[in-house]
Structures are given as C-alpha cells and as structure tokens.
Design a protein around this nucleic acid. Structure first.
Lengths: 199, 199
DNA sequence: GTCTATAAGCCGATAGAC
DNA sequence: GTCTATCGGCTTATAGAC
C-alpha cells in the first residue's frame, strides 16, 4: 500500500527473525525447557511482538516445526553417472543420506520430534509424512527403477537400508553410542549394499 | 534396631513408592514437563518427603533412570530347542526382541532418553552401555557361537539386524509412522533373516 | 506493530512443627 | 521421617502507551 515492496514490508522480515531465534532455542532446550523470554532474547524482539505474530507458545512451536519439516523434506540431489556400477550409485546415495542426517540441525530436530511426540502427535505425524516417508520413497523408487539390481521387495529393502542408517545415527550421535562402540559409517553402508545386492 | 524387619522399615517402602510415582510422571511428561507437585500427588507423599529422599529434582530423575536402565538391561530369555533350524531360532529371537521393545514402558523410556540426551548426556551414556550395548552383544554372541549360520561379520550383522528392528519401533510407535505406512513386524524379521543367512 | 510494565499463577526448594 | 505453610523467582500471557 506504500512505496515499499508489497505487503507489510518489515513484518515478514521480523517474522522470519522470530522464527530463527525460536528454532535455535526450541531445538536446543525442547518445548517445556524453552521460555518465551529466551526466544525474545534470541530473536532480538520483545515478547509481545512474538505473541502478536504467533498467538501463543504452541502456535510458535508449531510454526517452527512446520518450517523445519518443509526444509528437511527436500529431496536428495543424486547426480547419477550412467557409467557407475549399481553398487557405486547405492554407496553414493547411502553416504549422502548419512551425511545429511549427521547435520546438527537435523539431529536436533529429530531429537525434539521424538521427545515431544506424545505432547504434539500431529507434528510427529507431519514429520513422518514429510521427512521419513519421502526418504523411504526415494530409495524405494530407485530400487524399482533399477530392476538390474535384482531386488525382489523394494519396500522392505528400503526399510532395512534406511532403517539401519537412521538407527545408526540415532544411537551413535544422539545416545553417544559412538563413545562406547565407535564405528565408521562407511563400513555399515558397504555391508548393507553387499547384503542387499547379493541375493 | 527395633522389632521390625531390619533397617528403616517403612523408609525403603516409601522410597519405592516415590520412585513408582516419579517413573509414571517423568516418563509421560519428560523432565521439564514434570513438576515436583505432580510427582508428590502421583506418589501419595508430600514434596518434602521426596526432597529428603532424593535431594533435588535432578537427583530424583537420575534415580529413576538408573532404576529403569537396570531393569531393561535384563537379558532376553532364549529357550533354544536344539532341533530348531537356525532360521527358526533367529526368528524367535527377533520377535522376542521386538515384542519387548513394544512394551509401552520401554517405549516411554526410549523417548525420554532421546529427548533428554542433551540435558543429561551421562544418563544417555548409561542407557547406551546397559541397554543398547547388551542387546547388541546378545546377537553378536549368538552369531559367533553358531558358525554354521555362515555369518562373516557378527558385529556388523548385529548392527544391521538390531538397528533395523529398533528403527522400525521408533518410527512405527514413537513417530506414528504406522498410521502412514503400516507394516507387520513379522515380515521385517523374516526378510532380515533371509538377507543375513543368504550369503 | 512494537515497546514497557505488570498481572496471576506455577516452579523448585525450604523452614519449622511434630 | 513426614507433615503444613511459605518464599522468591520465573512462567505464560496481557494491558496500555506510542
């Protein structure tokens, strides 16, 4: 309505500013462990500004989880060279997947989603639909599009492949199992490929 | 010191009573979501009684996690009939393991351990040592003691077997993935056995 | 829309009677 | 050891000025 860009010029920027502060705070301390004062400090705005944008604490938490869920639902970029062997492609896919899972921002989101899954079941379902299901489908689709791999049950195989990798990350990174039984992720990926292709 | 049983007759009973109330409350609401008044109500004692037994909130939480960790560190009873085939034994082991993981009390503990793993890293390490490592070792030991299964790398195989099952439980039960992609655990167990034995 | 100031209630933890 | 009563402090959320 003015000479500015369009609708509510500074408002959207401030909204994003709040979201970033809220993401940092909620991902570190969880829902109950986070205070609105903390979020206000981390965002550089006052509490009232947050309340006028997001209504209440639950509204803010829901907003940041929806934002993060959308962000981490992005597909794995997979530049497949046609002259690579099936094993090489799978290896590249698996390691790319593991590397993304090891991103501290994703690990923190995963921890909070599991930790708050009883308090916010709908958000957990959203995470399952957007993040888990898409990762699973990416591998299922790849298996189906490449019958030369000789995989009989792409759905089950994706469950085992993705499941082993996800659990590896949860145990090693979130539960500090890497300090008790250290393990290189490459060995796990290579072994999984061997199991899956040798049938 | 009296005519009673031995040391502090009613005291140990009250301590156990507090622990039970605290377990129910902390497992449902997490650490920050639980108030000492809630624990007092759930236990049927007053707050001061809790403080005189456990010092502070952290002391109480630590005590219940140590208790639960010890409880869930128990080995899987595995009555192996010598005339069962390797596949049948593995299947029985896997299903017994999955059934135990699906126990709501274990699921709640797993959720809290992951959710609070940054706030209480030492408790997460305890859980890893007592619960995760022992489950993993049980399968490793079985694989090593039965070379007729033809498993080359028992450690890696246990990681894949246990990892797939644990991740299945986490996704299906804690993140409601069973509502999005329902799946019978028997199919997963059977497929894993097929993968592992067919090499 | 954004600020300062504040309300009303719950938090963990404690003091003192018995 | 167990109770009643209470203390600061921090919580979510709001009222009113600008």
């Amino acid at each position: 309505m003015t000479t500015e860009t369009g609708i509510l010029p500074g408002t959207q920027a401030k909204r994003q500013q709040i979201l970033e502060g809220a993401i940092a705070t909620f991902l570190q301390h969880g829902y109950e462990g986070t205070g609105m004062n903390q979020v206000a400090d981390a965002s550089g705005v006052t509490k009232q500004t947050i309340y006028s944008h997001f209504g209440d604490k639950e509204g803010l938490f829901t907003a940041i989880i929806e934002e993060l869920t959308e962000f981490h639902a992005q597909e794995l970029p997979c530049p497949i060279s046609p002259n690579d062997s099936p094993g090489q492609v799978l290896r590249s896919l698996g390691q790319r997947f593991l590397r993304r899972q090891k991103d501290p921002r994703y690990l923190a989101l995963l921890r909070v989603m599991i930790g708050e899954s009883e308090r916010f079941p709908e958000l957990a379902r959203l995470f399952s639909r957007k993040v888990i299901a898409r990762a699973m489908e990416a591998f299922q689709t790849y298996f189906k599009q490449h019958p030369e791999l000789g995989i009989e049950d792409p759905d089950l195989t994706a469950r085992v492949f993705v499941g082993s990798l996800v659990n590896f990350i949860v145990q090693q990174e979130l539960l500090y199992y890497k300090e008790i039984a250290p393990f290189e992720m490459e060995r796990l990926v290579d072994y999984l490929i061997k199991l899956i292709l040798k049938q």
